[in-house]
Each structure stands twice: as C-alpha cells, then as structure tokens.
Design a protein around this nucleic acid. Structure first.
Length: 462
RNA sequence: GGCCCGUUCGUCUAUCGGUUAGGACACCAGGUUUUCAACCUGGGAAGAGGGGUUCGACUCCCCUACGGGCUGCCA
C-alpha cells in the first residue's frame, strides 16, 4: 500500500496539512507501506521554492520521513498532457473552444434565470469538422446520467448526481494541466492506493473518480478527514494565532508531543490518550478517524508536550532543545552550558511543559557566576539569611556530596535556628539560582557539585 | 442559490439499539510539599431542536437550525 502527502507550496506548512501528512505517514509506516511526498506546484503564480523549503523543514521537524525523492507535480506536465490527449482520442474528453467571456455570460444568464450555473459546453457534441482554428481547452466528457459514488473510508458512501458535476477542464488553453487532472495522473502513476486528505477535497473526489473511470484506472481508497478549526470553531486562519507548524516549534512544543497531540486530534483508539510512535503506528487506522472538525486546544497540547518531554531520553532532548533555540532565534548553547544542561535535565524535564519552560527551570545551570539575583530572590537574601548561608558553608565543605547527607546538614542548621526547611530553602535557592522558582535545592546542589555550590554560597553569604 | 459533509461535558473523545452516557485536558475544592511543577482525593460539566421507527434510542430515518466544504482555464 502507498500513501502520499501532496501540499501546495504557497506558504508555510499549515498545521492541518501537518496532521494530514502525519495520518498518511502513520498509516503507511504502520503497515509496511510507502509514504510519498509530492509538491503540487502547478500554480506557477503562487508556488515558491521558499514555501517548498518550509514544508520540508516542517516535516523534518515533525519527524515524518518519506520514501524516495519529493516529486514536483509541475515536472510531470508533459505526462499529464499526454493523458489528456489519450482521453481525447478515446472520446472521454473533448475540445472546448468556449472563451472565458462566453462562459461568464453563460453563468450570468443562468444566475439570472435561476438555473444551474454549471457550464454546459456547446462543443461537447460538436462535429470536429466544425472546430475553429482557435485556442481550446480539453474538457472531460463527464457522464450526465446516473451518479458518481465515493466509498469513503471516513465519510462512508457519498453519492453525487452526475447532473451536479460539470465537464471539468483537464488541459488549459495554454496546454498546461489542471490540478484535477494532475492529481489523478500522479496518484495513479505513483501507485498511490490510499488517499488520505482534507475533506475540502470530498467534492473534488467525485470529479477525480470520473477521470479514473475515463482512463479505466483502479480507483484508490479515499479517506477525507475533517479540517482543524480554531478555538472558536471557525476555520483555522491566521487570526487564531499559530497556523504554521514551524510556529509550534518556535513556541517550544516537543516534536513527539506534537505528533501525539495531532494524532489524537480527530482520531481515537478507545480511551488511549498518551502514546509513543510505535503504539501510534500499531493502532492507527482509518476507522478511528472522526467525522467532525476538531478544534485546537493549547492547554491539552501543553499537557501532552510536557508528558513527552518528561519521558524523553536526555541525549535525545538536547539536540531538540538546540533546534528549538535556533528556531526561536535564541542564542545557541555554549559548551559549558550544554554539559551543565545534560546534568540538569533529569531534575528539570519532569516539570516542564515546553522547551522554553524547561530552559527556564534549568536557568541555574545555564547562568554563570557571579549570579545576579532577580528582584524577588534579592529580597529573600536579607542579613539574617546571609548569616545562615555563611554558617552553612563550612559544614558543606566536608560533607560527602550525596542527597541524604546534604538534606541532613541543611535540616540541622535550620533546626538550630528554630526554622523550618522552607525558611532556609528560600535563601539557598536565591544564592544557588538567583531566582525564587527553581528545582529542589538539593537537586541543584548535586547538579552544581561541591565546588560551584560553595562558590555561589560564598558569593551571597554575609 | 445548488450539491455534499458535519453536530456527545468548555475542549479532544468513548459508545457501534438496552451504560448511573466512560476517559483525558481544562476548571473548582481539599491533601501532600523547600518554591514552581508534579502527584493524590473529591466535585461540577454533554447527546443542537422537533418529529418518527422500535418494547427500548446518543446510536436508525425525516425536517429545522447552526457550522464547514465544493460550485474556477486555484490547489
């Protein structure tokens, strides 16, 4: 079995497109099939190489790999034209010499008369001998009786009356193929067996089936999935905020979390919410896809992202963090910071929903001495607190650097002053991290090590 | 306008004629706690509306409302 993702390179990779790609990828990868990528660049006006690059970057970040090279649809235009000629020869298509003006006049008249605006070409049954020497388009000779039926894996059986479908243009007057023709030819030639795409193509599917039938080609399995809507239930657009996949990377969601969230958006497998790629590949199927459009919920995305960050192996998280830094336009990690971060990951990743949040928790290991405490931290470092820190320092000097002993020492000092651990943890936190919100003070000491810990305490002690 | 698709807690969803309509996120209350987070316990929260079919409908059919898509020599 073969699936494909076929985006138009006219902008960024839309979050909805990303999910479509993900579904196709999951379906193919879970069944030992192939997942192909085709760039639908037949619209020369709007297609740009930058957009293609953005799509490739987005897929790479999401972790979706495709088989073979990405195919340019425009490159296959000669083949598409050839098929149009074949249909002409077999009589399943015809030359139409109607001009744009004539078509517009037809539609205007139809609108005024309240009849169907579907264009009915007078050339459909014209004698070839009467053909003028003028530009023409090649139109499909679509059946006028009966109905065209789509057996859709998501939408079920969808029936279109043929009198609702007009003779669509397959080859334009400049001899370039239209999208409707090109998709069908490419999908057939590429051996695509399952077309999973947005349901904005459901109506198009009927016209495309007519082309398959005209060519006598086997019709693939269609699965038209509902679009993703904004939080207000309206079609997702820029006014809702992030629509481009890369924006999600820049916001710091982890790729695994994004995959999990997007997979679960509009598809379900019982009550399973959190899963890894292997499970997703095993579970994913067309019958689990819902029929109603889904809305984006950033809170849930955060939750899922946090789950996967906590679960990720440190060695895999580090490159992802560095990729985030680059995507967000933030400075790269210095070598010392990279090493420190690796040590700090175990005590920070479990508390972060996103990568920027993780970096914030890891600030203590990213910052270099002498630390400049922020306002709140500075407020906690009063004279009394500094005195206690000064008292604590020599005791830590000779301690064996293990959690139990560090806890015991700090607790003893606190008790000597008639204080709870909470009272002394504050100033410690301020001295060690320069902040009031940090990982556990003992975790920080262990990550920082004896030397750095004592140095930082010394910086702040009275 | 015509054709097509959709509609279960705020959100994502389970249910495939018989359930006190379940789970997750979010929210609220309490607990735990060295901060934040995490975690634990509890709570409120749904079948768009109206007709049928049936012993019995969230589930099947029809109508209405609302949302979406298509209706291009765009994709």
């Amino acid at each position: 079995m073969v699936t494909r993702f076929a985006p138009s390179p006219t902008g960024y990779l839309h979050i909805g497109g990303a999910r479509t790609a993900l579904f196709n990828w999951l379906y193919a990868r879970g069944r030992g099939g192939k997942f192909l990528l085709r760039i639908e660049d037949t619209d020369r006006e709007r297609s740009t190489p930058e957009a293609t690059a953005a799509i490739l970057r987005g897929l790479a970040w999401l972790g979706l790999d495709w088989d073979g090279e990405a195919v340019s649809q425009f490159a296959g235009r000669a083949r598409h034209a050839e098929v149009a000629r074949q249909m002409l020869a077999s009589g399943t298509a015809y030359k139409c010499f109607a001009t744009q003006d004539e078509i517009e006049a037809f539609r205007a008249a139809a609108r005024a008369a309240g009849t169907s605006t579907l264009f009915q070409s007078p050339w459909r049954d014209a004698d070839p001998a009467s053909h003028p020497d003028a530009p023409y388009v090649i139109r499909l000779r679509a059946p006028r009786e009966g109905a065209t039926v789509i057996e859709d894996a998501v939408q079920g059986t969808v029936t279109f009356r043929n009198d609702q479908l007009d003779d669509m243009v397959c080859l334009r007057s400049d001899a370039t193929p239209t999208y409707m023709l090109a998709v069908v030819v490419d999908d057939h030639d590429m051996g695509v067996t399952h077309i999973i795409r947005g349901d904005d193509h459901l109506t198009n599917a009927a016209r495309q089936v007519q082309v398959y039938q005209a060519m006598g080609w086997p019709v693939p399995v269609f699965a038209h999935i509902p679009l993703i809507h904004g939080p207000d239930g309206k079609k997702l657009s820029k006014r809702h905020g992030a629509v481009g996949l890369e924006e999600y990377q820049a916001m710091g969601f982890c790729a695994a979390g994004m995959r999990n969230y997007l997979t679960r958006l509009g598809w379900s497998h019982g009550d399973d919410e959190l899963f890894d790629d292997a499970q997703a590949r095993e579970w994913f199927d067309l019958s689990g896809i819902g029929r109603a459009p889904a809305r984006l919920d950033f809170k849930k995305l955060e939750n899922v992202s946090g789950y996967h960050i906590a679960k990720a192996a440190d060695a895999e998280l580090l490159p992802e963090i560095e990729a985030y830094l680059e995507a967000a336009g933030r400075p790269a990690l210095r070598e010392a910071q990279r090493e420190g971060l690796m040590r700090a990951l175990p005590c920070t990743k479990e508390r972060a929903k996103t990568i920027p949040e993780l970096l914030d928790k890891a600030h203590f290991v990213l910052a270099a001495r002498p630390l400049v405490p922020d306002q709140k931290a500075a407020a906690g470092l009063d004279l009394v607190s500094r005195g206690i820190l000064a008292e604590l320092t020599p005791q830590l000097q000779n301690a064996s650097w293990v959690r139990d002993e560090l806890e015991a020492i700090v607790a003893a000092v606190a008790e000597a002053h008639g204080l709870g651990l909470g009272k002394i943890a504050g100033p410690l936190r301020a001295a060690l991290a320069g902040r009031t919100v940090t990982p556990s003070v003992f975790d920080m000491m262990l990550v920082l090590g004896r030397e750095e810990t004592l140095a930082r305490l010394g910086d702040q002690a009275a």
